[in-house]
Every structure is written in structure tokens, then in C-alpha cells.
Simulated assay, not measured.
Amino acid sequence: MKFPERFSNLPAHVWPRLRALLDAHDGGGTPIHMTIGEPKHAFPAWVTDAIAQNAAGFNSYPPNDGSPELRGAIARWIKRRYGVEMDPDTEVMALNGTREGLYNAVIALCPETKNGQTPAILMPNPFYPVYMIGAISGGSDPILVPATAETGHLPDFTSVPEDILDRTTAAYICSPANPQGTVATHEYWASLIALAEKHDFMIFADECYSEIYRDTPPVGAMQVAESMGADRNRIVAFHSLSKRSNLPGLRSGFVASGADTIREVKQLRNYAGAPLPLPLQQAAAKVWDDEAHVEENRALYAEKYQIADRILGNVPGYVSPQAGFFLWLPVQDGEVAALKLWRETGVRVLPGSYLAQDVNGENPGKEYIRVALVAPKDETERGLEAIRDCLYSDV
């Protein structure tokens, strides 16, 4: 029996690859997990009450596009957060986690050819792995655009050659960026939107870290598009409760765009979607409507930013993140550093190369490790001190 080859040449996924690197060795102390971006702060206590109060909904098939209550809460949040009016019936769709939407976006929205050629999908490098798999699954060429210190840790889409831009159907962009924590400015978004209009491609704006920031709320893609008078169908924005509300297991995300775009996304989901159970949708609606717990959560991360700055601020090349909950720390070799940390201290971090792909024989993540600041404050502090003492003892 022959299997498809479109995924067969990909490297092992991030987490099996990390386990293969570390688990053959004993850790050097009590494990401190700083690898996966899985929030560990408490979620609102009333969430479980909301699920229980709506438990009868488990007896019904859930609405495929999201309940009216959930879509309404999402539209209200977009208005509060970005000042953009979205029709909850035609311009918003609930997702079973944003990974679903980010993966399906190419399949649902990108044509099979463009200008008689195989479509190109632009994405940052390093990147969230689902971007590449989405492109490949949609029969498109993934085009990796460097997001390095030299580019301000955001991809320079204007550097992409014209012949590739002319066959580009979409560009993935994450702001605040995973893994570097860089925030796209209004000017950056405006430049990208103008480029997309010139070459007629869509923008898949992954904004799942938008609510974890220091002082100033990151500007959003849809917000900038509205200020420019751009067609909102060109902007496809993705958000989630996973980071905002410490609810990765609730699997509540959404996609927002113009009505024409959402119609196409809904069409695919009608056949292939796995909607969120109704009691979870009802609870999620209440979470999207509440900001008090988000402010408390943001304050906890602000404390950990300060801890990281104090402990690692003297490390050459250290960049204090603008937003998100990752540190992108410079090392000589990420795999060597991650293994050394684990064997000598018990701290587990992720080699940056596992979030990137080689281009012309070079991997832009090789000389970095990604460190997640998701554990409680005291544990995070111990982990950061161990990283400093193990990897940067000479500074």
C-alpha cells in the first residue's frame, strides 16, 4: 500500500524531537518545564460553573459556526479591543482552537493556481509549524521569510522577489510573534496590507498572544485595515482563549474576516469541522465578555518579564520581549544548550532550530533557545537562574 508523500520528508514534529533529544539522559535536578507554551496560571473559577449550568447541551449537536451567544460575545470583544464592528452572523466563526482555523485557511481560501503557477504561501522563519503543514495540505509552496534579529524578529515580506509575490495567495504572520515576542506596529501592518493589495493575496493574522503584553495593547491587523479602508475580506484574523484566559483545554478560538471570506471558511467547516460542545461554547461566551481575569493574568506575566530582565538582562544579545510569554535567548547551539541545561540542572527548554527550517543550509533558530514563562513565578525564577548559571556563567 502506498501512502502520500507530501508529509513524508518533513522532520519529526517538535515534541517527539525534543523527547528524543532529552529523554535518553537523566535530568540534573527537579524538572522545571519551560518548553511548551501551555499557560499554568489559574483560569476563572466560574468557568466550571458555567459549563455545569449548561451541561444539558451535551445532549445536542453543537452549532457548527458557534452559538449566537458565543459569536455575539466575540463580536463585542473585537469592538472593545480594536474598535471594529463585526457582524456576528456573517463575519465571525467559532473554532475548536485556532490551530484548526490556521490549518484549514489555505484549503478553504487559497485557489489551486495563481497566474498559471503553483500558489505560494509566505510565512516567517522561525514559525508555528501548522503554517507549513497548512500550505502543503493546500497544494501550495511554503515560502520561508527570515524573522531574525536583523529584520527586527518580524519577517520582511517586502524582500520577497516579485515573481514569488505574483503567485502568492496568502501570508501567515504572528503578532505578537512566537517565539520572539515582537509586536507588529501600525506601520508594519499597513506596509504588509499594501503589499497584499498590490499583489492580491490574503493575510492570515495569528494574534493569539495579543492580550499578553507589557503596557500598550498590540495593534491588530483588522484595526489597521479598517483605518486604511482596505477590504476586510483580505484580512483573516485568528484569536484564542488559550493564552488570554489560561484555557488551552477549552479549545475556544475564532476567525474573523469579511463576509465573503467567512462564507468560504464555513463551507469547508460544514463538511470537515469539529465544533466545540455547546456547554463549552456557552462558558466561552462568558469568558470573552470578561476582562477582569485578563488584566490579572497580564499582571502575573509582567512580574515574570521583570524577573527575566533582572536575571538575564546582562546576557549579550538578550532581548526583553514586548509581548507573549517566551524568551528567545541567544546561545551558540540550541540543541547543545538544551541538552546541557537538562543534564546539569533539570530545566527543559526548546532548541530554536526545532521551530525553523533550513534555508540555503542555514537554520535561523539554531543559535537560540525558546524559554516559556508559563510556570508559577517562583518556579520561573528558579528556572531562569539555572539557565543563567549554566549557560551564561561568564557574564
Rank of each mutant, 00 (worst) to 15 (best):
A292G: 03
A292T: 07
A292F: 07
H293K: 10
H293E: 15
V294S: 06
V294P: 00
V294E: 07
V294F: 08
E295S: 09
E295G: 03
E295V: 02
E296I: 07
N297L: 04
N297K: 07
N297T: 06
N297M: 08
N297R: 10
N297Y: 06
R298A: 07
R298H: 11
R298T: 05
A299I: 01
A299R: 11
L300T: 03
L300K: 11
Y301A: 00
Y301G: 01
Y301W: 06
Y301K: 00
A302S: 02
A302P: 03
A302K: 04
E303I: 05
K304W: 12
K304Y: 02
K304E: 12
Y305M: 15
Y305I: 14
Q306N: 14
Q306L: 11
Q306E: 14
A308G: 14
A308C: 11
A308E: 14
D309G: 01
R310I: 10
R310W: 15
R310Q: 15
R310N: 15
I311Y: 08
I311D: 07
I311H: 07
I311G: 04
L312M: 12
L312F: 14
L312T: 08
N314H: 14
V315S: 06
V315D: 06
P316G: 01
P316L: 02
G317K: 10
Y318K: 13
Y318I: 10
Y318D: 11
V319P: 06
V319W: 11
V319H: 09
V319M: 10
S320D: 03
S320W: 13
S320K: 11
P321A: 02
P321G: 03
Q322S: 09
Q322V: 00
A323Y: 01
A323N: 05
A323S: 00
G324W: 02
G324K: 00
G324S: 00
G324H: 00
F325S: 02
F325H: 03
F325Q: 04
F325M: 11
F325R: 00
F326C: 12
L327W: 13
L327S: 07
L327A: 05
W328V: 01
W328F: 13
L329P: 05
L329K: 09
L329D: 09
P330V: 01
P330I: 05
P330M: 03
P330S: 02
V331E: 13
V331S: 09
V331A: 12
V331L: 08
Q332N: 13
Q332C: 03
Q332F: 13
Q332P: 02
